[in-house]
C-alpha cells in the first residue's frame, strides 16, 4: 500500500466574476512509497500548493482522488496520522510556543501529561529551547518555520506533508531541517515536501516529481534520473599549446593555466586524450559531467532544450557547454 496516492487530480478556480475558469491542476498522478522522502518540485504557480491543499482537504478537487494509506485523504481519520506544515505558516500570535504546541496536541486527543513531555522534547528537537514561553508575535520567520515543523510532528505522524519547508530559513536552519528530515526517514516516516530550492531537495530526496503548469512532467528516483543523464565529458590537461588544441577541434576553456575540454560524446574521449598525449600534453583528469537536479528541472521547463550542445568561442573561461569532439 502506498503512503500517498494521487490519481487524476484536477482543480480549477473561477475568476471573481465567474466568467473565466482557471485550470490549476490538469490531472496529477503520483505515488509516494512508505518510508521515502519525496520531493515535489516546481516553479511558482505550477500547482504545488494547490495539490497539497487538495491532499489536506482544504480544497475539494474537481476530479480525481487522493488516498493516504489506501483511505480517502479528506477524512478526519486519515488526518490522524499526518503531520502538515503549510506554506508561510502563521500561528496564533497571542500564544507562546509551548501553549501553541499543547493546543495542537489537544486536537489529536493526546493526554495532557503525555502532551507536555512530547512538547518539551519537540521544542528541543527543532531548536527552540529557551523560547518556549515567548509569545509567537515575537518570533522571527525562521523560528515560526521551526515551530511549524514541531506542530507537524506533535502526533508522531507516519506521513509528513511539508509545503515549502525551507522558505524563510537561514543556512543553519536549512541544514538543521535537512538533518531532521533525514532522521525522520531513518525512523521509517514518509516525507512529502514541496520546494523550489533545488539544492536542498537534491541533498535529501529519494524520489522526485516535477510539476509544471498543473501536470507532473517527470517522476522517478533521483539517483536514476541523474545516473542516466551524463551531459558531457570533461578532459582537463596542460602543457599543450592552444594551437594544438585548436587542431583537435574540441571546445575548451583556459582556467588557472589548465585547459578544460568539453566533449558531448564519450566515444570522442579516447581520441581526444590520445591527441593530447601525442601533442606532448599532460592529462590531469577525465570525468563525465552528470546532470544535476537543477539541470533536469530546467530541461523540463524549457522542453528539453536546456543543456543541448551549442557552439561557443573557445578560451574565455565562461560557463561551458559541451561540443562534439574533434579528430586529432
Amino acid at each position: 500500500m502506498k503512503a500517498l496516492e494521487i490519481k487524476g487530480l484536477k482543480k480549477s478556480f473561477r475568476s471573481n466574476f465567474l466568467i473565466k475558469k482557471f485550470h490549476i491542476l490538469k490531472g496529477i498522478d503520483l505515488e509516494v512509497e512508505k518510508g521515502e522522502i519525496y520531493g515535489f518540485l516546481g516553479p511558482n504557480g505550477a500547482g504545488k500548493t494547490t495539490t497539497i491543499k487538495c491532499i489536506m482537504g482544504l480544497l475539494s478537487p474537481d476530479a480525481g482522488e487522493v488516498l493516504i494509506d489506501g483511505e480517502p485523504a479528506a477524512t478526519v481519520k486519515a488526518r490522524q496520522r499526518i503531520g502538515f506544515l503549510p506554506e508561510n505558516p502563521y500561528f496564533y500570535d497571542y500564544l507562546t510556543a509551548r501553549e501553541f504546541l499543547l493546543f495542537s496536541a489537544s486536537l489529536f486527543n493526546i493526554p495532557e501529561k503525555e502532551a507536555r513531555d512530547k512538547v518539551a522534547a519537540l521544542i528541543h528537537r527543532v531548536g527552540l529551547s529557551g523560547h518556549e514561553d515567548l509569545k509567537l508575535r515575537k518570533f522571527s520567520k525562521g523560528m515560526i518555520q521551526r515551530l511549524g515543523l514541531a506542530q507537524a510532528l506533535v502526533n508522531d505522524p507516519d506521513l509528513l506533508i511539508l509545503d515549502e519547508p525551507f522558505s524563510g530559513l537561514d543556512p543553519v536552519g536549512r541544514k538543521d531541517l535537512r538533518t531532521l528530515i533525514l532522521s525522520l526517514r531513518e525512523q521509517g516516516k514518509t516525507v512529502f515536501f514541496s520546494s523550489h530550492i533545488l539544492q536542498d531537495m537534491e541533498l535529501m530526496v529519494d524520489r522526485v516529481g516535477i510539476i509544471l503548469d498543473g501536470a507532473i512532467r517527470r517522476q522517478g528516483r533521483l539517483s536514476e534520473m541523474i545516473a542516466h543523464s551524463t551531459q558531457y565529458h570533461e578532459v582537463v590537461c596542460d602543457r599543450i599549446s592552444e594551437k594544438a588544441l585548436a587542431r583537435i577541434q574540441a571546445n575548451f576553456a583556459l582556467r588557472d593555466g589548465q585547459f578544460i575540454l568539453t566533449l558531448a560524446s564519450d566515444a570522442d574521449v579516447n581520441l581526444v586524450v590520445e591527441s593530447i598525449i601525442h601533442n606532448s600534453g599532460r592529462i590531469l583528469a577525465v570525468h563525465p559531467v552528470k546532470m544535476t537536479l537543477e539541470d533536469i528541472f530546467f530541461s523540463e521547463m524549457t522542453g528539453g532544450s536546456y543543456g543541448v550542445p551549442t557552439s561557443r568561442s573557445n578560451g574565455t573561461g565562461e560557463p561551458r557547454r559541451p561540443a562534439t569532439g574533434g579528430k586529432p
Partner: peptide, 14 residues
C-alpha cells in the same frame, strides 16, 4: 484570513 485555519483543519478536526 491569517490561514491559521489550515493548521486546525489539517488535524483530525471536522
Amino acid at each position: 484570513e491569517r490561514k491559521t485555519v489550515f493548521n486546525i483543519l489539517s488535524k483530525p478536526v471536522s
